[in-house]
C-alpha cells in the first residue's frame, strides 16, 4: 500500500526544523531514517499530515566525548555508524554489541539512533540499551530544551514523553563506572526479525569481586523497556555465582516482565527464554567486569 497524502517539509537548519515542528505540532512527524515510520505510513497505521525531513538538517550527526567521559550522539547518527565507531566500541561496548541485532545492514544504513529511540518500539534494541546505560535524551523546541532520563522517556507502547513541538536532538551516555561489565543477548526465530526475548545486563563489582550495582533490562517483555529492579538488587552485595544468576534470572523472568504469547511462541516460552538469556548475559557481564 501507499501512504495517505501528506505534506513534505525539508528544513535546512535545526531552527527551521524546530519552527516547522512548532507550526505543525501534533499533525507533524519528523522523518529520520524512515525505517519504521515509512512502513507504518504505508500500512496507514500512521497518517501524519506533515513530514518534516531531518535528513537535510546539519549538525545532528556527530559523535563526541565530553571531559567527564560522557559520549554524546546527534539524533541522526546512523545505526551502521554506531556499529563501527571506535569511540562506541571503546566506551560503550554494550551499544556496539547490540547493534548487529537490529534488523539487517540495509536498514541500519538508513536507521538512526534518535529515530529508533523516538519510535519507542518495546521490541527494539536501542531504547533498551539507552535505559540500561542510564542514557539521557535531549529534547528541543523553539521555546527551549530539556534533558530527560531514557527510563522516564518511555511511558507506554510506542509512546514517549516527547511534546508535540519537540524534537529529539541528542543522546548522552555517561561513562561506565570502574569495574563495570556489560552484556547483551537476544533470540529471534529468524535472523533480523524482532527478538522473542532479549536482555541487557550492566553490573559493577568492587576490588574484591563483590557486586555493587546491577541493572537488567528486557525487550519485547512489556509496553516499554522493562527494568527488573528487584531482581537486579538481589545481585548487589553478592559475589557472582551460578546460583545467584539463576535466582536472579528466575525472579526477573517470573515477576518483572510481562511477555505476551503470539503465533511465534507462547508467553511461557518467552519467560523461559528470558531466564536463560539472563543467566548468559550475567555470566558474560561479570566476566567482563572482572577484567
Amino acid at each position: 500500500m501507499k501512504p495517505a497524502p501528506f505534506e513534505y517539509v525539508a528544513p535546512d537548519s535545526l531552527d527551521g526544523a524546530l519552527a516547522a515542528m512548532q507550526q505543525h505540532g501534533f499533525d507533524a512527524k519528523p522523518l529520520a531514517g524512515g525505517q519504521s515510520l515509512v512502513p507504518v505510513m504505508n500500512f496507514r497505521l500512521a497518517q501524519p499530515g506533515v513530514l518534516i525531513d531531518l535528513n537535510g538538517v546539519p549538525g545532528l550527526d556527530g559523535i563526541w566525548q565530553t571531559s567527564d567521559g560522557t559520549l554524546h550522539f546527534g539524533s541522526m547518527v546512523r545505526q551502521s555508524r554506531l556499529e563501527r565507531d571506535p569511540l562506541v566500541a571503546q566506551h560503550q561496548p554494550l551499544l556496539a554489541e547490540a547493534l548487529p541485532h537490529i534488523a539487517h545492514p540495509q536498514i541500519r544504513n538508513r536507521g538512526t539512533f534518535g529515530g529508533s529511540l523516538a519510535h519507542a518500539d518495546p521490541a527494539a534494541e536501542l531504547p533498551l540499551i539507552c535505559v540500561a546505560l542510564n542514557g539521557r535524551i535531549k529534547l528541543q523546541s523553539t521555546t527551549g530544551e530539556r534533558w530527560i532520563a531514557a527510563r522516564d522517556f518511555y511511558t507506554s507502547l510506542f509512546t514517549t514523553d516527547i511534546g508535540d513541538e519537540e524534537l529529539l536532538v541528542e543522546i548522552a551516555l555517561p561513562p561506565l563506572p570502574a569495574g563495570t561489565g556489560t552484556a547483551f543477548t537476544e533470540m529471534a526465530r529468524r535472523h533480523g526479525d524482532y527478538a522473542l526475548s532479549g536482555v541487557a545486563a550492566v553490573v559493577t563489582v568492587d576490588g574484591s569481586g563483590v557486586c555493587t550495582a546491577a541493572r537488567l533490562v528486557y525487550l519485547n517483555a512489556g509496553e516499554v523497556p522493562m527494568v527488573a529492579e528487584q531482581a537486579a538488587q538481589m545481585l548487589v552485595g553478592e559475589r557472582p555465582s551460578e546460583e545467584i544468576w539463576l535466582e536472579t534470572a528466575v525472579a526477573a523472568s517470573q515477576n518483572e516482565i510481562d511477555p505476551r504469547g503470539d503465533i511465534h511462541a507462547t508467553a511461557d516460552y518467552k519467560r523461559h527464554l528470558a531466564k536463560v538469556l539472563t543467566i548468559r548475559a550475567l555470566k558474560q557481564a561479570f566476566a567482563r567486569a572482572g577484567n
Partner: peptide, 9 residues
C-alpha cells in the same frame, strides 16, 4: 557468530 552476541552456553 553474527547471530548471537554471546556464545551459547
Amino acid at each position: 557468530n553474527s547471530i548471537q552476541s554471546l556464545p551459547g552456553n
